[in-house]
């Protein structure tokens, strides 16, 4: 019988704290930090509309789209890993987490090549206010992705060691919340810098 099709994969309790309180303190801090940076983006955009209209066409839209697909796919794999853990399928959970790591690690790899491409085309921090804002926000996001990848390695080790069970996997769920928040922030950065003109 297919357990995944019959067991409840979502907690039914309303008003619960997904993961644990500590991760939500971290997520609140992350969201506040990025909200302030987005505010700087909007103020800079209001002051320099021409720079922000011309800027996106100089960036690689293919790279931006690739980041988005990689990150949402990585987030999807984490969500599937969590669902597998809830039906006590530890091996499937580990496979999904490994897939999440592979997709997530694709992000900094493409970023490396994109930055090299940008610099080769003179798109550095001196290329105008659009690029200053772009580098500031995207590098900050990159740092959060690195932390997330380290967290992903940690929950993979814990999953492999059998530390999580179907009944007790708050640490895994807490990591999932952090990773999805990092996804959400990218889903905002992507249209602001690569699409909107």
């Amino acid at each position: 019988m297919n357990l995944a099709a019959t067991l409840p994969l979502r907690p039914a309790t309303l008003g619960r704290i997904p993961g644990n309180k500590a991760i939500w303190v971290g997520i609140y801090c992350e969201v506040t930090e990025f909200a302030l940076m987005f505010l700087v983006y909007f103020i800079a955009r209001a002051h320099h509309p021409d720079s922000f209209t011309a800027g996106p066409s100089q960036l690689s839209l293919a790279a931006g789209t690739a980041y988005t697909v990689l990150l949402v796919t990585s987030g999807f794999c984490v969500a599937r890993g969590l669902a597998a853990m809830r039906v006590a399928n530890r091996q499937a959970c580990l496979r999904w987490l490994l897939a999440a790591f592979v997709f997530g690690a694709g992000y900094p790899m493409i970023k490396f090549f994109e930055v090299r491409w940008n610099l080769a085309h003179g798109l550095d921090g001196d290329a105008g206010v659009f690029f200053v804002t772009y580098y500031y926000l995207t590098f900050n996001h990159l740092v959060h992705v690195f932390w997330g990848l380290l967290g992903l390695l940690w929950v993979m080790v814990r999953t492999g060691a059998g530390s999580y069970t179907a009944a007790e996997h708050d640490g895994l769920e807490a990591f999932a919340c952090y990773w999805h928040t990092t996804d959400i922030i990218w889903l905002m950065i992507f249209p602001l810098f690569y699409v909107l003109r």
């Binding site: 979502r10 008003g15 997904p18 999807f76 984490v78 999805h180 928040t181 996804d183 249209p191």
Partner: peptide, 30 residues
């Protein structure tokens, strides 16, 4: 562009983060 951004983050909140069952404060902040 703003509508697509809103729909995408809503999908992540609802299906991946499962905020529908989360406490009201967490849901409201997100």
């Amino acid at each position: 562009v703003a509508a697509v951004m809103g729909i995408k983050v809503r999908i992540v909140c609802a299906y991946f983060m499962e905020l529908g069952t989360a406490s009201r404060r967490i849901r409201q902040l997100m």
